[in-house]
Amino acid sequence: MARNQSDVGVSGILFGIIAASIILLGANSFVIINPGQAGVLSVLGKARDGALLEGIHFKPPLIANVDVYDVTVQKFEVPAQSSTRDLQELSASFAINFRLDPLQVVEIRRTQGTLQNLVSKVIAPQTQESFKIAAAVRTVEESITKRTELKQDFDVALGQRLEKYGIIVLDTSVIDLTFSAEFARAVEDKQIAEQRAQRAIYIAQEAEQEAQADINRAKGKAEAQRLLAETLKAQGGSLVLQKEAIEAWKQGGAQMPKVLVTGSQNSGVPFLFNLGNLEQAVD
Rank of each mutant, 00 (worst) to 15 (best):
Leu24Asn: 15
Gln37Leu: 01
Val187Cys: 05
Ile144Ser: 05
Glu77Pro: 03
Gly50Leu: 06
Asp189Ser: 11
Leu103Phe: 01
Ser267Trp: 03
Ser173His: 03
Ala197Trp: 11
Leu25Pro: 07
Ile56Ala: 11
Asn266Ser: 08
Gln160Leu: 10
Gln152Ala: 14
Leu170Thr: 08
Gln251Trp: 00
Gln235Arg: 14
Tyr202Phe: 10
Leu241Trp: 09
Ala134Val: 03
Leu177Asp: 05
Ile203Ser: 04
Ile175Lys: 06
Leu14Glu: 12
Leu239Val: 11
Val66Arg: 04
Asp171Pro: 02
Arg110Met: 03
Gln126Arg: 08
Arg3Ser: 08
Asn28Thr: 13
Ser21Ala: 15
Gln212Tyr: 11
Ile32Asn: 11
Gln205Lys: 11
Ala229Glu: 15
Ile63Trp: 04
Ser264Trp: 01
Thr114Lys: 01
Tyr202Cys: 06
Ala248His: 02
Ser238Phe: 01
Ala20Cys: 15
Pro102Thr: 12
Leu103Lys: 04
Glu182Gln: 12
Asp86Glu: 10
Ile215Val: 12
Ser29Lys: 06
Ala184Ser: 10
Leu275Trp: 00
Ile13Val: 14
Ala2Trp: 09
Ala197Cys: 06
Glu223Gln: 09
Ala207Ile: 13
Val78Thr: 13
Leu87Pro: 06
Thr262Asp: 02
Asp101Gly: 02
Ile168Thr: 11
Gln205Ala: 11
Thr172Leu: 09
Pro270Val: 15
Val174Cys: 04
Gln212Asp: 08
Ala19Pro: 01
Gln205Asp: 08
Lys59Glu: 01
Ser267Ile: 02
Gln242Arg: 08
Val240Met: 14
Gln152Glu: 15
Phe271His: 06
Pro270Thr: 13
Thr172Asn: 13
Ile175Pro: 00
Ala47Asp: 14
Phe271Asp: 09
Ile17Lys: 12
Ser93Glu: 05
Gly12Pro: 02
Val187Ser: 06
Val40Phe: 14
Ser267Pro: 05
Gln116Thr: 13
Glu188Phe: 01
Phe154His: 04
Lys243Leu: 08
Leu41Asp: 08
Gly253Asp: 05
Glu188Leu: 03
Arg3Thr: 07
Arg110His: 00
Val137Met: 14
Gly268Tyr: 06
Gln209Ser: 07
Tyr69Pro: 10
Val140Arg: 07
Gln242Pro: 00
Pro35Leu: 04
Asp101Phe: 02
Glu129Ala: 13
Gln235Trp: 04
Ile63Asn: 04
Ala19Gln: 10
Glu107Gln: 12
Ala124Phe: 04
Ala92Gln: 08
Ser238Val: 00
Lys132Glu: 15
Thr148Ser: 05
Glu129Asn: 10
Val106His: 02
Ile33Cys: 09
Arg99Val: 01
Pro79Met: 14
Val169Lys: 05
Thr84Leu: 00
Asn97Leu: 10
Arg110Leu: 07
Gln205Thr: 03
Leu150Thr: 03
Val8Gln: 12
Phe94Val: 07
Leu87Ala: 14
Gln160Ile: 11
Ile167Phe: 03
Phe183Asn: 04
Gly236Lys: 13
Val156Gln: 09
Thr84His: 00
Ala80Met: 04
Ala222Arg: 14
Gly113Phe: 04
Leu232Gln: 11
Arg147Pro: 01
Ile63Pro: 04
Ile203Gln: 10
Ala248Cys: 02
Thr148Ala: 07
Thr178Glu: 02
Lys243Ala: 10
Gly26Phe: 14
Thr178His: 01
Phe30Met: 12
Glu188Val: 01
Ile203Glu: 11
Val105His: 02
Phe30Ala: 09
Lys75Asn: 09
Ala197Ser: 15
Thr172Met: 09
Gly263Ser: 03
Arg161Glu: 07
